[in-house]
């Protein structure tokens, strides 16, 4: 149906765009819930495990996506611990499904959410928490009425980076999701397919769209930072 507006893109391509958007949205929402407690713990703890946890969270920044994808594939496969567990739950196996893609993407994009939020928590420092305590606010109360509002710029940065990074993934998707139209075939994989098939027009449109999207996201991010740093 979108084909009428862009004759060069087929329905399969629009399905890939829509799937990418859905994946990035779901992953971003999950990451905010998973990443926030990790970021809080990393920002506040004096535990000797801080370094270990911080390094594990940051691993996807440096690992080839294929390495991460390979281990996730093994873990979620029929003989892996996650695979056994999902089979026991009766939901079958995750690889080559949309939920499997979501799980893999959460791991892959975790550092992009944890680190800005952790930085924001660290920048707040202990003083506002102490002030809130002397004003009768319990720790939970303080978190919602002081920490969250003060860390808001960090959360916005984290959500933008988490979303954009999930949109931009390729290796992990290919390893975990494969290339199933409307299920796991996201834009980056679709571009790969078009290039393989020498369909350069479609590849140009999708690649150009990704370039524009990424540039606009980063432009928004950096001009927002400049604006807040002037305040």
């Amino acid at each position: 149906m979108f084909g009428e507006f862009h004759p060069a893109l087929g329905n399969a391509d629009w399905a890939a765009v829509w799937l990418t958007f859905r994946l990035a949205s779901v992953v971003t929402v999950i990451l905010m819930f998973v990443g926030t407690p990790i970021a809080w713990w990393l920002a506040r703890t004096r535990s000797k495990w801080k370094g270990v946890v911080g390094a594990v969270v940051a691993l996807p920044l440096v690992l080839p996506p294929t390495v991460l994808g390979f281990y996730l594939l093994v873990a979620m496969g029929p003989y892996g611990p996650v695979g056994q567990f999902t089979q026991w739950l009766g939901i079958g196996l995750l690889p080559f499904t949309f939920p499997g893609l979501v799980v893999a993407s959460v791991f892959y994009s975790l550092p992009f959410v944890v680190q800005p939020v952790q930085n924001a928590f660290e920048a707040i420092g202990p003083r506002p928490l102490e002030v809130a305590a002397t004003l009768r606010a319990s720790p939970w109360d303080t978190f919602f009425t002081v920490v969250l509002p003060l860390a808001k710029p960090g959360f916005i940065t984290a959500a933008i980076l988490g979303f954009a990074h999930t949109v931009g993934e390729f290796g992990v998707v290919l390893m975990i999701g494969g290339n199933i139209p409307e299920k796991t075939r996201v834009v980056s994989v679709a571009i790969y397919d078009h290039v393989e098939a020498l369909e350069y027009t479609e590849a140009h449109i999708l690649a150009g769209g990704m370039l524009l999207f990424s540039f606009l996201v980063l432009l928004g991010l950096y001009s927002r930072k400049a604006a807040t740093s002037w305040k």
Partner: peptide
């Protein structure tokens, strides 16, 4: 008794108003 349950008022050395 945690701080938030003590009936105290505390004024810190530097201004510590909530900026938001």
């Amino acid at each position: 008794l945690p701080t938030y349950q003590r009936p105290i008022g505390y004024v810190f050395q530097e201004a510590s108003l909530f900026p938001h």
